[in-house]
C-alpha cells in the first residue's frame, strides 16, 4: 500500500478544511471499502482523513415520525438499537445483514452512502423509505443523492452529517445474497406510508441503486405479493456478470419484491 498522511480531525469543519487543502484526500469512515481498495492499489490517496474521532458524529434519535441516524453510527449500533428495531424493524434487520459482525463494528451509514457501491444495502433503504441525507451544507433527498456507480451528489467540500428516515406504515427488505461474498445479487426494500404510497428501492441489480417504478405502480393499485411478483421487469440496463445474467436479476427483482410485500 502506498503511504499517506493520516489526519484525525475533531470537527467536521476541520475535516472538510483538510480535504479541501489536500490534492488527493479521502475520508475514512470505517474503512472496509477504502482500506481493501488501497491494498489493491486501486486507490492511493495522499491524505486519509479519519472521521471517527469527530465529536457527536454518531448516535440515533427516533421521534414519532422519523428515525435519524448520524453519519458515523456503526452498522452494529443500528441493528442492535431497540429504538430502530421498534420504529422501522425492516431497517434494523437489513443493517444486521451487512457483512459480518466484525465488519459491522467498523462500517458506518455515512461511509456506505458516500461510497454508493452498486450492491450496498443502505442505498436501497434510503430510496425505499424516501430518506433525506443531511450534509454540512444542505439536505438532499435520496432520489437526488445516488447519481451513478460509486457516484453521489456530494460535492468536494461536503460531508454527510446524518440521515433522516421517515417511519413507514409497513416495510420489508429482502436480499438474495451472493453465496460467497454475501453482497446482494439483488436486494429490494419495499415500504408503504400512511397514505398508501409505496416505494421500492433496488440494489445489486444495476450499476446504481434505483426505484422500481413499475413495481411501485402495481403496488399503489393493489398492495399484494401477487401484484408485485406479477410485474415483468425488463433486463435492459441491469448488470450481467459471472454471478448472474441481467435476465436472472430482472426475475429476482420481482420475486424478491413479492416476498418483501408478503413480509411487510
Amino acid at each position: 500500500m502506498e503511504n499517506f498522511n493520516y489526519h484525525r480531525p475533531a470537527t467536521t469543519t476541520a475535516a472538510v478544511a483538510l480535504l479541501k487543502k489536500s490534492k488527493d484526500g479521502k475520508f475514512l469512515a470505517g474503512g472496509h471499502t477504502l482500506i481493501p481498495t488501497m491494498k489493491q492499489g486501486l486507490a492511493a490517496p495522499r491524505d486519509v482523513i479519519d472521521l471517527t474521532a469527530i465529536k457527536g458524529f454518531s448516535g440515533i434519535k427516533v421521534s414519532k415520525t422519523m428515525v435519524t441516524i448520524k453519519a458515523g453510527t456503526t452498522h452494529q449500533d443500528v441493528t442492535m438499537s431497540k429504538d430502530v428495531n421498534k420504529a422501522i424493524p425492516a431497517l434494523a434487520q437489513m443493517v444486521g445483514k451487512i457483512g459480518g459482525v466484525h465488519v459491522r463494528h467498523k462500517g458506518t451509514i455515512g461511509g456506505s452512502l458516500a461510497n454508493n457501491d452498486p450492491a450496498a444495502d443502505y442505498p436501497s433503504a434510503c430510496l425505499g423509505l424516501g430518506a433525506t441525507i443531511e450534509t454540512n451544507k444542505r439536505k438532499i433527498e435520496a432520489d437526488k443523492f445516488f447519481t451513478g456507480m460509486f457516484e453521489t451528489a456530494l460535492k468536494n467540500d461536503e460531508i454527510i452529517i446524518a440521515v433522516h428516515f421517515p417511519i413507514p406504515k409497513k416495510a420489508s427488505h429482502q436480499k438474495f445474497p451472493n453465496p460467497a461474498s454475501r453482497y446482494a445479487m439483488v436486494g429490494v426494500f419495499v415500504s408503504q406510508d400512511g397514505k398508501g404510497k409505496t416505494r421500492v428501492g433496488v440494489t445489486g441489480a444495476a450499476p446504481c441503486v434505483f426505484r422500481a417504478v413499475e413495481v411501485e405502480a402495481a403496488l399503489n393499485e393493489e398492495f399484494s405479493a401477487k401484484a408485485a411478483s406479477a410485474v415483468k421487469i425488463s433486463a435492459k440496463g441491469l448488470l450481467s456478470d459471472m454471478h448472474a445474467s441481467a435476465a436472472y436479476r430482472a426475475h429476482l427483482l420481482s420475486v424478491l419484491a413479492g416476498r418483501a410485500v408478503a413480509a411487510a
Binding site: 475514512l28 482500506i35 452494529q76 465488519v103 463494528h105 467498523k106
Partner: peptide, 22 residues
C-alpha cells in the same frame, strides 16, 4: 481482504478485523 477473520482482535471491547484497521 477482510473476509476470513483469522486476524480478529478486540479493540475497545469490540471484535474487529485487524487487517482492515490502521
Amino acid at each position: 481482504t477482510s473476509q476470513c477473520g483469522a486476524c480478529v482482535v478486540s479493540v475497545n471491547g469490540k471484535a474487529v478485523k485487524s487487517c482492515t484497521v490502521f
